[in-house]
Amino acid sequence: MVAAAMLAAALAFGQAAQVPDAAQFVGPPQGRPLAGEELKERTQYIGGLLRCPVCQGLSVSDSPAEMAVNMKKQVGELLARGYTEEQILQYFEHSYGQFVLLKPKFQGVNALVWLLPVIVLVLGAAVVFMKMRKLAQPSVAAAPAPPAPAEDPYVARVREMVGGGK
């Protein structure tokens, strides 16, 4: 056992240093290699989608921290090798989890963060239109609105639940 480890170590001696590579996790590049101004712009953009893990909420593009600088460099290298935005994000997600993605995926529970504001917009717009129509009707709003005593209690309750009795 010990001998085997020593043998392996001896074999490894002289071998070039090698760091974990994106190919290990997301396969070969699926896009075209970028260079020049385009590379710089895409690096900045994708860096903006990644969270700097040692900072507090800043993106990799925005942070001056060394960790962020390293991550941004790696984004640049991957782009230069032809990796796509999707692959690069997937690579970082593989090691950091969804925590590293500043733009949440539209997936599972996370989709709610995109959907809820839209739902609120639709509901809100409906309420505004209803309010405008109701207020535009002459008699209802202007009357001092004491509930008519003769009204069916059931109807009164429905009214109360629907519109707040106004």
Partner: peptide, 15 residues
């Protein structure tokens, strides 16, 4: 999200 499934996620500037 963390309360629901215990997973950490971020909502940042791009959102």
């Amino acid at each position: 999200v963390e309360a629901i499934n215990g997973k950490q996620m971020s909502v940042g500037r791009p959102y």
